[in-house]
């Protein structure tokens, strides 16, 4: 009985990338550019997206440009763009490294809403192989980020 329940939980965790990722990743970190980062502790691959706050300010999206897989980016380099109706917003790489994967499903216009609806899970934008762990030190915890958002309101 107990085993069955555990297995069920495990299965559901496997089906839900977010839960699976959480088990091995750092807690979510945030930047002043309203982006979030989680890092897989073993591979040092950072997953990056924009925050719910940034998504809500932009509103409905009409275009998403993602970086090229294989691109070498320095911290703060442009890593793409997001456009809502007539408003373009730059996406920056929060860390230095090589792009190893992008969330191609977002570029399909029917999926763009994922950025607004699930910014912290299915709305992830790209994964980057970090070359310098120390860059994480300057980022904010979720609590600090919420304070930061409040302070700029």
């Amino acid at each position: 009985m107990l085993t069955a329940a555990t297995n069920m939980l495990r299965r559901s965790a496997m089906q839900n990338g977010q839960i699976a990722a959480r088990m091995f990743s750092t807690s979510r970190l945030f930047t002043e550019d309203h982006e979030w980062v989680t890092v897989d502790k073993e591979s040092k691959i950072a997953t990056v997206g924009i925050t719910d706050y940034a998504a809500s300010l932009l509103g409905d999206l009409v275009y998403i440009e993602l970086p090229a897989v294989g691109a070498d980016l320095a911290r703060q380099d442009s890593a793409g763009a997001i456009e809502s109706v007539k408003a373009s917003s730059e996406v920056y790489s929060p860390v230095t490294g090589k792009i190893v994967e992008v969330n191609d499903s977002l570029t399909d216009s029917s999926n763009m809403a994922l950025i607004n609806e699930k910014p912290f899970s299915d709305g992830w934008m790209f994964k980057i192989q970090m070359s310098d762990d120390s860059e994480l030190a300057g980022m904010m915890s979720e609590d600090k980020y919420r304070d930061y958002v409040e302070s700029t309101k």
């Binding site: 550019d33 309203h34 932009l58 007539k86 408003a87 373009s88 917003s89």
Partner: peptide, 11 residues
Amino acid sequence: GAAYSIIRDRA
């Protein structure tokens, strides 16, 4: 004809 740009804390 208008357009907008948003960077960090500014628009």
